[in-house]
Design a protein around this nucleic acid. Structure first.
Lengths: 335, 335
DNA sequence: TTGTAGGCGTTATCAC
DNA sequence: GTGATAACGCCTACAA
């Protein structure tokens, strides 16, 4: 069912039908009614492809998500999808590999999809390879990166102050009298991990909890970012330093794992040790006790991006090209 | 950069360029090399929109997800996305409302996107309104529904035997000597909830755990499907029947909540009470103790759908129009 | 082996 | 107020 079919049925030209479909003026009210009825009766749906060919936009936004399993990022993508659905934009979500080359390849592949804009989920995309791919394949289209920083004329970055956040977590625990505070890092394969780690070092020095000791020695890093990994590392921590009474984990998942070990050993939380996670995810709630967690504002960042995106898509100015959201500690039962 | 631009640069016609791009025969090896080089140098990317207009397919699959917050379904969508990415198909994920009308509206809106096929995530879409919308707006395109049953010439349903699964959970607990087994249902606003509930009733009768009592009295239903809700209901259950020693929850999330209450009351799991969740999600792992959970095969269903989808897209037969996956209890620490 | 012409469904630009 | 007509970028007969 094309506009020509409808036109024939109505005894008018395709142009008139097109005008009715797009609510454009210049068509007799009577004719308009008639065409509208016909459209309805034949449940005509416009062919967005053909439309896109001439209007040069697809009402589609590409979202790249790294395949390294992160529910949290996917939730963010889902959130953005919701916001865009409201204004009748669809999202094409594509999984990419995690290496810089694979990320860059993702840019290229999404480029072929003729999306109107692109969102990069996570700091993993903040690297030179990706920046280059953007220059090559996304020259004219706006690119938004969530929790990562890329520089370019058409690139907008929304990051959250994870470094400052983790730093304040140390301070928070120190304020509760915790003297031996350790940090479980996630895999150091992306900027965000470094940020958090740096934040811990800064906080540890500022709080003066390491004395003569090198604060680096308070950092542990597991094989993976999952619950089992957190469990293992916690085991090691307790073995090496049974006096540990403050714990900050780079993700809620790692924290869940650590908490398991503490349960098993009968170490009470937060009486004997306080635990803080990062992400403020559903895992923080599923954990017992409910985890105090650093809200790194993934959802809020998604909102910011959605707003900028919609503004940009509608021809308005998206605003500042780099913004940072402040994080906040959401206190629950584990501290 | 269009094929015409490349053609001009190479001093040939657009058709030759097109032939090279699509790896079609009938072009001088020398010319082919030259064109290929040009394509590369100008990092030409084909306009999928224009291509779609003539080939009448978009290499895009629509996925409808209900906005009722369900990480689990989104993970499934993500999973399918991954599978389709491998064969260079993109997915357009659209959130829809939860009422039958809103779901049907989603079908219409995805219809405008000229996707090659549609996937409906969850049993919420299994209703007559949606079936009607499919007949109207998706007449020619294959529709796949995950964990829900819709009948139609172009509709393929993959469901999982949640009813049988929950039934066997009752049996499983009864086999462990649990005599008072209760069920916490999720909101009864979709077929899947009914299935699970029915399964419980069937299991309760078969196991003979209700005696003269009406097994309906063993069913509790909370306001929401979240952790807090599970916590509240568990509280009530213990008040009304402190002798409860077996618990089946319609979702892992509800189970997490229930476990919280048990912790608080100092009731040991599984010593005093065994707990089983449904979904076999990450929440089951985040919980302490790790939850025994009924794997309702969402991911596996996604795989089935992806396979059928790809087959169908490539012109092969997708196979049976309705299949059911058997569920299985994944035993962990809570039973 | 190569090029020409027509068409995919829509919108935009003119005449009328 | 209405209707031809030409794009949009690509593919595919068919002709050369």
């Amino acid at each position: 069912m094309t506009i020509y079919d409808i036109a024939k049925l109505a005894g008018v030209s395709a142009s008139s039908v097109s005008r009715v479909i797009n609510d454009k003026p210049g068509v007799n009210p009577e004719t308009r009614r008639k065409i509208k009825a016909l459209l309805e009766d034949n449940n005509y749906v416009p062919n967005d492809i053909a439309r896109g060919l001439v209007t040069r936009n697809s009402r589609l936004v590409g979202i790249l998500v790294p395949e390294a399993y992160s529910i949290h990022l996917m939730e963010g993508a889902y959130h953005i999808t919701g916001r865009l659905s409201e204004v009748n934009y669809g999202t094409v979500i594509i999984k990419t590999g995690c290496t810089p080359s694979e990320c860059a390849e993702g840019i290229r592949s999404i480029g072929e999809r003729n999306v109107d804009a692109v969102v990069l989920m996570g700091s993993r995309y903040a690297n030179e390879k990706v920046a280059g791919a953007i220059r090559q394949f996304m020259e004219k289209k706006p690119v938004f990166v969530l929790n990562g920083e890329i520089t370019g004329p058409n690139v907008y970055s929304v990051i959250s102050d994870e470094s400052g956040g983790v730093c304040s977590c140390v301070n928070f625990l120190a304020g509760k009298g915790r003297r031996r505070i350790v940090y479980i890092s996630d895999a150091m394969d992306r900027p965000s991990s470094f940020q958090k780690r740096q934040g811990f070092l800064r906080g540890a020095r500022a709080a003066g909890i390491c004395g003569e000791e090198d604060p680096e020695s308070l950092i542990y890093e597991g094989r993976n970012n999952d619950i089992d990994s957190g469990e293992e590392i916690m085991e090691r921590i307790l073995q090496e330093h049974p006096d540990t009474n403050g714990l900050i984990c780079a993700t809620d998942m790692l924290a869940c794992g650590a908490v398991r070990t503490l349960h098993r050993k009968g170490i009470r939380i937060p009486d004997r040790i306080s635990v803080i996670g990062v992400d403020n995810s559903s895992f923080a709630l599923a954990c017992y006790p409910k985890l105090t967690s650093l809200n790194n504002m993934i959802l809020e960042s998604g909102d910011e991006i959605a707003s900028k995106l919609i503004a940009s898509l509608e021809g308005r100015k998206p605003g500042a090209s780099k913004i940072m959201l402040l994080t906040e500690i959401v206190e629950r039962e584990s501290t």
